[in-house]
Design a binder for these strands. Structure first.
Lengths: 155, 155
DNA sequence: CAGATTTAGTTTCCGCGTAAACTAAATTCT
DNA sequence: AGAATTTAGTTTACGCGGAAACTAAATCTG
């Protein structure tokens, strides 16, 4: 029979990706999916998400920073930042204090609970060794990091 | 006056990020945000999203592939894949044809419209030159690509 | 072959993150 | 100083993507 080209296609799992494997955007998406999986596999039980921890981390390094400044730095949109901060405040991780000089602005500081949480989980979240757990050598991992820093403009 | 440590904090924009700049997960997230921005700046007007184009692309290279196989390959969850494919079908980009042998499975092929769309926008979507538009040299961009491919296991 | 299990895909429900509209405060411009 | 504009943050409405429950078909097992 063999009627048309569709029938020639095997239903096996070998999929041709072609040049899309060269697209930075595509590669970055897949890479982030893997990083996410790795993140939750390692510390899914803690009930906190990458963005939330990052905010706590930045506040711990810059106590009293304005909410908007942090949002801009971490590419978090204002509307989302409001909810994220509310969640963390409700969890007792941080405190909002309105700025005395500019009464629109909100300054953020960690509570002792928040400080403890960051200190305790610091190593797990930074997981600079993620790359090692994949196929990269230490040197490759460092190169990848450096190129990503340059790509993102964080250098 | 200068009452407490909070007041020492300047409200300027210099934010200390510390070791989080070494975290692959963090770097990947920022990198992907940038890639997204670049994507929409370049072709936002076309009314299609990265994931959608990628699916069309893969079907064009593998006509008649099963929906689930594509989803697994591209790390798209089944529930999301259903909606994504429905959208593309409604737009007349692709056709679903139930497999004759396995009546649960759905095979996907592009319509002429879909084929034309992929052919026409191929270059814009692959944008291998994204890296160039940032701070990377051609060689660095290639290294970054190679490391991401290895990291993601696509090599 | 009948019952149990697995597999493909869909539907329902929900949360995250965004855009748009809004409030309030600060700043700019005559 | 008073009106217009800008800025900080919140609220509301919504769409995307995911988890869980579900349907239907195929496969496995005794």
């Amino acid at each position: 029979m063999m009627p048309n080209a569709i029938m020639d296609q095997q239903d096996d799992e070998t999929v041709e990706l072609g040049d899309i494997k060269l697209s930075p955007g595509f590669l970055l998406r897949i890479a982030q999916v893997k990083a996410f999986e790795s993140f939750f596999a390692q510390i899914g039980g803690l009930g906190i998400k990458p963005g939330e921890f990052t905010v706590l981390w930045v506040i711990s390094l810059n106590p009293g920073l304005k909410q908007g400044t942090i949002a801009r730095t971490l590419h978090i949109k204002p509307a989302h930042m409001t909810k994220l901060v509310s969640r963390l405040a409700k969890d007792g991780m941080l405190e909002r204090t309105p700025d005395t000089a500019d009464r629109r602005a909100v300054r953020l500081t960690l509570t002792p609970k928040g400080e403890g949480f960051v200190a305790r989980n610091r190593a797990k979240f930074l997981d600079t060794d993620l790359a090692q757990r994949v196929a990269l050598t230490a040197e490759e991992a460092e190169t990848l990091n450096a190129l990503l820093r340059k790509f993102t403009g964080l250098d």
